[in-house]
Design a protein around this nucleic acid. Structure first.
Lengths: 395, 395
DNA sequence: GGGTGTTTATTAAGGTCTTTACAAAACCTC
DNA sequence: GAGGTTTTGTAAAGACCTTAATAAACACCC
């Protein structure tokens, strides 16, 4: 609330134009009347007029000459809207099996989206696919790389937010040796940021719920990751915040050598499947024995009321609740939102987790499922890229 | 960076005077030359002159006429300093055994401090002592209650930050039924805030280390609490953030009925003592058997190299590390700082915790001991009160 | 003891921005 | 087509900061 240093009159103008631009953004994608901006910003008409003039000249907003829908009598209003093409941003989700990219305009409209699967888990191959996907996405949006105003890349592993180096990424072999950040910085004129995928998913979920508060957003699939968003801002800590996969749950955990953390080995999608298989062998009466077993089948069976599956789900939920309970007690989040493949389990899992968390915490958070589809991470990357653009707005 | 709504020219002036006042504060308690303020703020001399004039008139700063120490030749500089008495703040620490109060001036100078022990743990009695301590503190500082600009009260238990109501406080019987907030609001004209004691201790510790970053500050005595400070701001979550005492550690935990949480029952000061007693009975060769056993004795023996005591300390440290590891993984704090009675254990405990945490987390935080003395909580309360004053500064 | 130099305060002029007030424009309704 | 309504546009005034020039106060030096 006042980190500004010196302040001459030009500062005022910047402040006010920024305020006007924000108002225009909040109305996007609808065009907005000038008189309306006056009300929204609380500024006077000449000020708003001046600001809009500047913004048009700078290319941030555009006029909407044809005042097609003028309500009552009166001079037709000058209407302006955000010129999305002024600063399109590119988001990239480099997952272990797929690479997807998207381009949003300033107003948050999706201009292009491309998804491609990666066969081999080798870093060099991934990099080639990344380049191809970016090229295709730019083509689809009809843009050149130089026109992109911000790039945010989501990757598994721990990322050093300063340099953009990937410090730890077990799921893609050789991924840490690739300097993804530098590779992309060469291709774009704009800032390029590399960020942990779970963190970006959390950001996307948080924006969905819009508003202040603390959110713990979990990505739960083969692996487990989480992001913490406090009052709309991503919490990074020393850089590795949200790595819940490495929580050591109570009880024995199978020892593997693939770089996964204890919690992932205990209740990752694969572990759930394995646990169900064991249960099925012990209980031939279960419907689980009727077909191939995977995580989805377990949750389906539990939803249908199969006792054996229900027991497995409850076990998984308890382990999860026990694992995150300390973090919930320390953070006291308003909500814990679960996304990723396991989130498709739905109410069965949710109810069980809620029950166990209520037992283990003082102020149990809402437990919910991410309403976002598969492109949660990509959406988060694009959100952060847009944030970047808006943050350095008065340039 | 721009939450301001409307902006006329007067806004500029407020911005600039605030900037000047901040600069004066940062130099406190030393008086500062006007020319120096020009450099610090980046504003021009006339602007600074005007701002200082306004501030003097409003009573925030005062002149230092006698330019006693003028260095080289030149016109003697006008020097100003923060007028501490402009807005003294009162901090209160209502602990289970003692009530202490302090008054700081704007510059953070301690004007008065009073500490009194409470015999009976009854709420009504505590309230009487609170009133007496406040009266004594005001007297010591030579101030009236109406002159106090902000009041912050530290109390154990969970506090609703909006109403100031105490929702849960096992250590003082009947404490929840007392509306401490209303009781004090009647006595002061200024805002009164009630806050959890561990949270305030965390704030004090965070200010000590000054700078951005994430801090988990633990208060460890008979009970266990913690506070989370992120970039200098206290994290509250839904209100009960930092309640690590209710983390359920692995292993069996004695069941008591005194409202304490599982972790407190497992490794609170009392539990440490109890564990040491058991160990001493089993190992008569230990120096622990030579005298009365309490937590301090255990740590002393461990420091001296007694194997049995070392084992107890290691056990305690491991339980602690296991309990907070999930929170450390989620938060990725820069540091975990331990205060409270157990903190006097020193290096033995610290080293053990560091070792176990390194094993359980990805980016192990610095583990340290609070350099603040017994009045950590009181200091935190005063810091928050000062923050309150500075936040509503341009009034 | 007076001159010189240095540091600082004061004053005046100039520029930028917002505000206030007023006039003009364009469209609808009657 | 006259009147009304809503909005835009323009001009003058006020507030504030900045630049620049001037004056003041003291130490040092000759």
């Amino acid at each position: 609330m006042g980190d500004e240093r010196a302040a001459g009159t030009p500062v005022l103008r910047r402040l006010n134009t920024a305020s006007v631009l924000r108002a225009v953004r909040d109305c996007a994608p609808d065009p907005v009347r000038l008189a309306e901006l006056v009300k929204l910003t609380g500024l006077t008409r000449p000020t708003v007029g001046q600001a809009v003039e500047d913004l048009v000249e700078a290319g941030w907003v555009q006029h909407h000459h044809p005042a097609a829908a003028s309500r009552k009598g009166g001079r037709p209003a000058v209407r302006v809207s955000l010129r999305g093409r002024a600063a399109p941003v590119l988001g990239l989700d480099v997952g272990p099996h797929t690479v997807s990219a998207g381009i949003d305009d300033l107003a948050g409209r999706r201009l292009a989206a491309v998804r491609r699967s990666v066969d081999h888990n080798k870093a060099s191959r991934v990099l080639t696919v990344v380049d191809a996907v970016i090229a295709r996405t730019l083509e689809e949006a009809g843009l050149e790389a130089d026109e992109i105003a911000a790039v945010v890349v989501a990757t598994p592993g721990i990322v050093d937010s300063g340099s953009g180096r990937i410090l730890l990424a077990p799921s893609v072999s050789g991924w840490t040796s690739v300097n993804l950040s530098d590779h992309l910085r060469d291709r774009f004129r704009c800032p390029v940021r590399v960020e942990n995928d779970a963190n970006l998913a959390a950001l996307a979920v948080a924006r969905e719920r819009s508003g202040p508060g603390t959110l713990l957003a979990v990505q739960w699939g083969e692996r487990l990751g989480a992001g913490v968003v406090i009052d709309g801002r991503l919490h990074r800590g020393t850089g590795a915040a949200g790595e819940i996969g490495f929580i050591r749950p109570p009880g024995r955990v199978p020892d593997t050598d693939d770089g996964r953390g204890p919690l992932e080995r205990a209740i990752g999608a694969e572990a759930i499947t394995e646990q169900a298989r064991r249960a099925a062998r012990a209980h031939p009466e279960s419907v689980l024995c009727d077909g191939p077993i995977d995580a989805a089948a377990v949750f389906a069976a539990a939803t249908a009321g199969d006792a054996v599956a229900e027991h497995v789900v409850d076990d998984v939920a308890r382990t999860f609740a026990q694992a995150i309970a300390p973090a919930v007690l320390v953070l006291a989040p308003d909500a814990v939102v679960i996304g990723g493949g396991v989130a498709r389990a739905g109410t069965v899992l949710l109810a069980a987790i809620t029950r166990h968390l209520a037992d283990l915490t003082l102020t149990p958070p809402d437990v919910g499922i991410s309403g976002l589809a598969e492109d949660t991470i990509l959406t988060g990357a694009l959100r952060m890229a847009l944030d970047d653009v808006w943050r350095r707005l008065p340039a």
